[in-house]
Write a protein that binds this DNA or RNA. Structure first.
Lengths: 110, 110
DNA sequence: GAGATACTTAGGCAAATGCCTAAGTATCTC
DNA sequence: GAGATACTTAGGCATTTGCCTAAGTATCTC
């Protein structure tokens, strides 16, 4: 697997979990201290920290400890690889639609 | 979890697996018959079919059976929700950069 | 209609994942 | 420096995931 695809893999794995996405959504609004980050979840601190570690290893989140407090934040641009990958998975029909400026609406009944 | 987030969840879960991403990459080039789809993978047909089912349930792939042959294809626009979600996870700094037309390069040593 | 094809279903199993409790360790506060 | 804080590490456990083999079922081909 090429180097950039490893990154896509790590990022997608990280984002595949709802808890981790919630963390990302929270951090998109700005940095947060670990305990504050954990507060809204019905989950123990160690569990949430594990999620945070996954996000960090995927390069999506970074964190720094000052004293006994660890502050986490989103790593800017870390999700760009996903946009890139997604862009490559467009069907010929979609490329065609792009050229015509048409927006295809999906038909999915749920 | 709001309705659209369920979709994000399903799509991200589906794309979190390398085999399933490879299938998507293949289908981005055009529809394919199940057995042809399975051929490049060192995996039994039933295993690959399971992946295909996950992709279908996530709405990323659709398939149709004619006779004894099932043809799978990407469902156009199914990945749009991801673009949408990704767009919402931009940091204030990134929004700022957008306005200035600056492309942030990530510093990651590996 | 007998055999080959192309899936499909069912069941099982090992490894990965997500979560928890319990017990640290390092700082901070008084 | 004693107790409170804020993580951190370690270990365990149930569920989910990804994969397999074996045994169907529905076409197609001759």
């Amino acid at each position: 697997m090429p180097k950039y695809l490893d990154e896509v893999d790590a990022v997608l794995r990280a984002l595949a979990d709802p808890t981790r996405r919630a963390v990302v959504e929270r951090l998109a609004k700005g940095p947060a201290v670990v305990s504050d980050l954990a507060e809204p979840f019905s989950m123990t601190l160690p569990s949430l920290l594990q999620h945070l570690r996954v996000l960090e290893e995927a390069g999506v989140v970074m964190s720094e400890k000052q004293g006994r407090v660890r502050t986490a934040s989103l790593r800017p641009g870390s999700l760009d690889v996903l946009h890139l990958w997604l862009g490559q998975q467009r069907t010929p029909a979609e490329h065609q639609a792009d050229r015509l400026g048409i927006h295809l609406t999906r038909t999915k009944d749920t």
